[in-house]
C-alpha cells in the first residue's frame, strides 16, 4: 500500500509538471460552458451574422434548461472523449518509450501497483476536471435558463462519469501492450467510436451497453421514466472497467518491456 501511494504521488507530481492539472480542467470547463452560452445568445448571434431580408422572422424555440444541460453532456461525448484519450494516451506507452518504465520496474515494484496507480491518477484527474466543468455548466444553466435540481445534476454526473471512466480504462488497456502513444490514441478512439455507433444504431439490443449511459444520464436530467436497464448498464460498466484493468495488468506483466 505504501508503495502504491508512492507511485500515485509520482503520478500526481508528473501531471502537475506537465500542466495536466491546469489544461484538462480548463478544457472541460470550456467544452461544457459553450453550450448554455451559445444556446442563450443564439437569437443575437443569428441577428448579427445573417443578412436577412427585411421582414424575415426566424422563430427559434427557446430550449429548456434540461435540454441545454443534456447538450453539455453530449459535448463531452465528442470533444470530452477526445480530451480524455489525448491526455492519457501516453501514460504507460510514453514511459515505456522513454525508458522510465524500465527504471521503475527494475526495482521490486509489482506490476499491479504500477498499472493501478497510473489508472488511479488518471481517474482522479478525470473526475475532478469533469466535476468542475459540469458544475460550471450547471451553474450557467441556472443563471441563464432555469435552475435544475441539484439531485438531478449529481445523478446524471455519476452515471455519465461511469462512461467516461470506461473510456479512460480502454485507453489504459491499449497502453499496456502498445509502445507508441499515437497508436494508443488512435486505437482507443476507434474502439470508442465503434462502441458508440453500434450501441446507437442497435439501441434495442444494446440497452445494457456502457455507451448508452449518456442517454440514461439524460433521462435523469429530463426526469423522464427511468428504465431498469440503467442498472444493467451501470453493472456492466463497472465490471467492464474491472475486467479491462485486470486484463491490462495481465498483458503488461507478460509483455513487460518488450
Amino acid at each position: 500500500m505504501k508503495q502504491w501511494m508512492t507511485l500515485l504521488n509520482k503520478e500526481l507530481l508528473e501531471m502537475t509538471r506537465n500542466f495536466k492539472w491546469i489544461w484538462v480542467p480548463i478544457v472541460f470547463i470550456l467544452i461544457a460552458v459553450m453550450e448554455p452560452i451559445t444556446a442563450y445568445y443564439m437569437p443575437q448571434i443569428i441577428d448579427s451574422l445573417g443578412d436577412l431580408p427585411d421582414g424575415a422572422v426566424i422563430e427559434l424555440p427557446v430550449p429548456s434548461a434540461e435540454e441545454v444541460l443534456v447538450a453539455s453532456l453530449s459535448q463531452y461525448n465528442t470533444l470530452g472523449l477526445l480530451v480524455i484519450i489525448l491526455s492519457s494516451m501516453g501514460i504507460i506507452a510514453g514511459e515505456r518509450k522513454s525508458g522510465v518504465a524500465g527504471l521503475i520496474l527494475v526495482k521490486p515494484v509489482s506490476y499491479t501497483a504500477f498499472v493501478t496507480a497510473k489508472w488511479a491518477g488518471a481517474m482522479l484527474l478525470l473526475w475532478i476536471s469533469y466535476f468542475i466543468g459540469y458544475f460550471v455548466s450547471w451553474y450557467y444553466v441556472g443563471i441563464l435558463f432555469d435552475t435544475i435540481p441539484f439531485i438531478d445534476f449529481i445523478q446524471s454526473f455519476f452515471i455519465y462519469g461511469l462512461w467516461l471512466s470506461f473510456v479512460l480504462t480502454i485507453t489504459v488497456f491499449f497502453n499496456s501492450f502498445l509502445k507508441s502513444p499515437g497508436a494508443v490514441g488512435f486505437l482507443s478512439f476507434a474502439a470508442v467510436i465503434v462502441l458508440i455507433v453500434i450501441s446507437g444504431t442497435f439501441s434495442k439490443w444494446f440497452e445494457w451497453s456502457p455507451a448508452q449511459l449518456l442517454s440514461y444520464a439524460s433521462t435523469f436530467i429530463m426526469s423522464g421514466p427511468i428504465s431498469s436497464d440503467v442498472w444493467a448498464a451501470i453493472i456492466l460498466s463497472v465490471s467492464g472497467i474491472i475486467m479491462l484493468l485486470g486484463g491490462s495488468i495481465a498483458i503488461f506483466r507478460r509483455k513487460e518491456l518488450a
Binding site: 491546469i22 489544461w23 480548463i26 470547463i29 470550456l30 452560452i37 445568445y41 441577428d47 448579427s48 443563471i143
Partner: peptide, 30 residues
C-alpha cells in the same frame, strides 16, 4: 442588429469568465 445595440452590460459578466480562463490557458502555454 448593430454592435452598438448589443447590451454589453448584460453580456460581459456572463462571457468574461470564459474569456478569462481561455486567456489563462493561452498564457500558461506561452
Amino acid at each position: 442588429m448593430e454592435l452598438s445595440q448589443v447590451n454589453w452590460e448584460v453580456i460581459i459578466p456572463i462571457v468574461a469568465p470564459i474569456i478569462l480562463i481561455q486567456l489563462i490557458l493561452l498564457a500558461i502555454a506561452i
